[in-house]
Design a binder for these strands. Structure first.
Length: 111
DNA sequence: GTTGTGACTACCA
DNA sequence: ATGGTAGCCACAA
């Protein structure tokens, strides 16, 4: 029988990538989720950074709610002075997610 | 194989 | 609360 070899075609084709995308797509509007939690839910606990990688490479036209993903500190993971940061904050507020001093309460708004 | 990097985290001062 | 950091895991060069 054949030995399991690492596939030459990475992400976008492997199970992990798809599982992460599927999980991200499920985050309800008005809620947020952390990178680590997404990884765990997708079945890849401990791979929070990979979730970040997936999000970073999402196509512009993707329907994935990337703005609903924040870090474990309850903060947006973009530089405060960046357009991406402002865009994410704007979108979250647009969904009714309260943000005080740049922080979101995971206790009540975590998916 | 090694090294640098990152939309991360848990832990600790 | 806040800033620093070691650990972590996957990717790209």
């Amino acid at each position: 029988m054949a030995v399991c070899v690492s596939s030459p075609t990475r992400h976008r084709h492997d199970e992990r990538y798809q599982a992460i995308l599927d999980t991200l797509a499920q985050i309800p509007q008005g809620y947020v989720c952390t990178y680590g939690e997404i990884a765990k839910r997708a079945g890849f606990k401990g791979q929070a950074r990979y979730v970040g990688f997936v999000l970073k490479h999402l196509p512009e036209d993707s329907s994935i709610p990337w703005h609903r993903v924040i870090n474990a500190a309850g903060r947006v993971s973009f530089p405060i002075d960046s357009d991406k940061y402002r865009e994410q904050i704007r979108r979250l507020r647009g969904e009714g997610v309260p943000i005080r001093n740049g922080k979101i309460k995971l206790n009540t708004h975590m998916w």
